[in-house]
Design a protein around this nucleic acid. Structure first.
Lengths: 206, 206
DNA sequence: CTCTGAAGTGACATGATGTCATTTCCCTAT
DNA sequence: ATAGGGAAATGACATCATGTCACTTCAGAG
């Protein structure tokens, strides 16, 4: 959280600072962004930055939260518009994000927010499991998968199935470590989600 | 990729360096790790490090790839053992990772690999959508979701359903930006995966 | 008009990165 | 055995970023 000083700032000065930060975080991923650049762009002394924010990430998180708030009402509105249908609402949300981010230069940092996590590491998870599309291994693995029971119509679907399972597995790992879950909790969550995946998130015939 | 020089190194020296790097990356997340610490621990001059690696990330990726290779055979073996059943294999893989990481101190960096991505940012995606468990908003959103058609037995399942959808959505966003997919490609992939989620990844009755 | 606490300021100590001129090592050819 | 040459090793250095702090300025209350 930015310090109170930041919120006490006159609107225009605060806005200048926000724009400068957005610009810097849009230029490069978080870890490369430099406070020096932000203060230079904003035309404020270095010390002032630390008067307002704890550090670089503090500013970054503030920007993300700003965006979050902007989208909060958005998603709720979408749910409402789609009669509570989670899939329709999230699909529309996804569409809006895809459409919005490329058009606003200062939102580039949101795109970086997603890429940051992978950065040059590309997809760590993919690396750890050695499953990436250009790899021989993926083909080997794909060929070994028993497709009889999978609900897929072609090879392309299989790739998507793998992607889905990997996303969910990855998410579970992050949760496990971030929340310091016990082994039992982590396994239990994982199994629940795998079962949901197998059986489908919607009742049949819908 | 590390430079050839690194692979030309005598085994013991290379191993010392690997251990030093693992130690440093296990100590702190990637962006805080310092090359100075690695060379100090390994007892090699600073310049040598750059003789072997491009930079910090190069070393980091090398370590991850090493782990990847160690697990590659692993996963294939698991698939084979489980008659190609993807769910069983991945569940066993997951279990093994959970069991293995906490016991080996020098594998702590793998744990960091997952946490890195989220770092202090926790779950950026969660922030952007303002859906986190402690938030009022999640309750509000949950209450608005039409649960009639969802294949869930209780409120707890609903949380898992949301987690799954978020993981997959997040993954799609990362893919979109990392691979610079067009809007159409990104939407198409997303819809395919959402449909798979709705209908289930396995044929009924399995 | 003065006093006081909050905010602003920028020089500075510290420490990290990547480079490069120089030295050392080791293999090969004579 | 030794001279030559290319690869590898070395560590001092230029550069740059961070966070701090002593000092200054400001603005509002009395």
């Amino acid at each position: 959280m930015p310090k109170q000083t930041f919120f006490n700032l006159p609107d225009d000065k605060r806005q200048t600072l926000i724009l400068a930060a957005e610009k810097e975080f849009s230029r490069v991923p978080l870890f490369e962004a430099s406070i020096s650049n932000i203060v230079k762009t904003a035309g404020i002394p270095r010390g002032s930055f630390y008067q307002y924010f704890e550090d670089k990430e503090d500013a970054y998180l503030f920007l993300l939260n700003q965006q979050a708030k902007a989208r909060q009402g958005n998603f709720i509105a979408l749910l409402s518009k789609n009669d509570g249908n989670l899939f329709d609402a999230i699909t529309e949300m996804y569409r809006l994000i895809l459409l919005e981010i490329p058009t606003q230069e200062n939102l580039e940092f949101l795109k970086n927010a997603f890429l940051n996590m992978t950065h040059k590491i590309e997809n760590i998870f993919t690396k750890i499991f050695s499953v990436n599309e250009s790899s021989e291994k993926l083909r080997e693995i794909s060929s070994m998968i028993n497709k009889e029971n999978l609900n897929i119509s072609d090879e392309d679907d299989l790739t998507h199935v793998i992607q889905i399972i990997m996303s969910v597995t990855f998410h579970n790992l992050v949760e496990k470590f971030a929340k310091e879950l016990t082994y039992e909790q982590a396994m239990s969550n994982f199994k629940i989600e795998m079962n949901l995946l197998k059986n489908g998130l919607c009742k049949q015939g819908i």
